[in-house]
């Protein structure tokens, strides 16, 4: 556990390496070489070292996951003869078991379908909703916006019990459609909030000009506002996709039969059988289940960051 004082001591370095140079120079009054070395050493201790520790700790579970997934059993359970941090005879056995002896490909398809459908549905609703709130000036628009923000604050772990009952009542229990319809409860508030911000950044004048030119409101939305909001749409879309891919509690509560499960639920409930855990296949499953979002993420890093921070900044 790192203490607060470390964090604060580090703030010393905030913003300016120049500050460090000045300070070192002023207090010690040594020659320039000593100064340069001193400040470089200081910079190493204060910035690079803690940063490296952070990165290693944050990434280690993924490394551990990946390396376990390709380890043969004898290496996995014998730390005396084999260093656990390395894999001496990599094998695809675990991944093969996962792909051909379990329903993993099927779970992947279900997850993918649910994620795409829920994202599409949420985007459609939030684009229209955000457009109405941000662009069609009407009384109560602010209240609607606030209500949607509050909806974002309602945690799924409070909702899932009554939702299970609703899903049961409408006869969707154990169907992926239940997930497609319930995921928007947390996706729509987030996407709407994000898109309101984007719509607000588009100047009104553009729409007014089009109105004067005789465009209908729908034409304006389709040909002016939406094309300008494309970056926002991409942000909202990929974030919604990731959130649906990662969703767990609804999928756990509403789906019973093995073939309708999503990847996170299936790995935890179908691959963990009995007392002997197949760690190799478990890790392979976790790795393969993480890869799609990780790859997706690597293509759209900037969009992720902007939607993440946009969602918080209000």
């Amino acid at each position: 556990m790192n203490s607060a004082s470390d964090a604060l001591a580090d703030a010393d370095d905030l913003g300016a390496g120049a500050a460090v140079l000045e300070k070192g120079g002023a207090s010690r009054g040594d020659g320039p070489e000593r100064l340069a070395w001193d400040s470089r050493f200081r910079r190493f201790v204060v910035i690079y070292l803690p940063l490296a520790i952070f990165v290693v700790v944050l990434l280690f579970p993924f490394y551990w996951m990946a390396i376990t997934a390709i380890k043969p059993d004898d290496e996995m359970y014998d730390y005396k003869r084999f260093n656990p941090f390395w894999v001496y005879h990599p094998t695809l056995h675990n991944i093969r078991v996962l792909l051909f002896e379990t329903s993993y490909p099927h779970w992947l398809t279900v997850t993918m379908t649910v994620a795409f459908a829920a994202t599409a549905l949420s985007l459609l609703c939030s684009v229209l909703g955000a457009y109405a709130i941000a662009r069609l000036r009407f009384r109560g628009a602010q209240t609607v916006g606030l209500a949607i923000y509050l909806a974002y604050m309602v945690p799924p772990s409070i909702l899932f019990i009554p939702l299970a009952s609703v899903v049961f009542q409408v006869g969707l229990y154990d169907s992926p459609i239940a997930l497609i319809l319930t995921y928007p409860t947390f996706l729509i508030p987030f996407c709407t909030w994000l898109l309101i911000g984007y719509f607000k950044s588009i100047p009104y004048e553009l729409e007014e000009c089009a109105l004067i030119d005789g465009a209908s409101r729908l034409q304006i939305l389709r040909r002016i506002t939406l094309p300008l909001a494309v970056p926002g749409l991409i942000s909202a879309g990929i974030f919604a996709f990731t959130l649906s891919w990662n969703e767990f509690i609804y999928a756990l509560a509403f789906i019973q039969s093995s073939e309708n499960k999503t990847v996170p639920v299936a790995i935890l409930t179908e691959l963990v059988t009995g007392d002997v855990y197949q760690w190799g296949s478990l890790m392979a499953g976790a790795l393969l289940g993480s890869l799609p979002v990780a790859i997706f993420y690597s293509f759209f890093v900037e969009y992720y960051v902007s939607s993440l921070t946009g969602g918080v900044k209000e």
């Binding site: 952070f54 990165v55 944050l58 990434l59 579970p61 993924f62 551990w64 996951m65 990731t242 891919w245 990662n246 767990f248 990847v263 996170p264 639920v265 790995i267 935890l268 478990l282 890790m283 499953g285 976790a286 289940g289 993480s290 979002v293 990780a294 993420y297 890093v301 992720y304 960051v305 993440l308």
Partner: peptide
């Protein structure tokens, strides 16, 4: 650095 946030929580929890 953002990876732990992106990857499904349950899957990293298994790790």
């Amino acid at each position: 650095v953002l990876l732990p946030f992106i990857v499904p929580t349950v899957l990293s929890a298994i790790a």
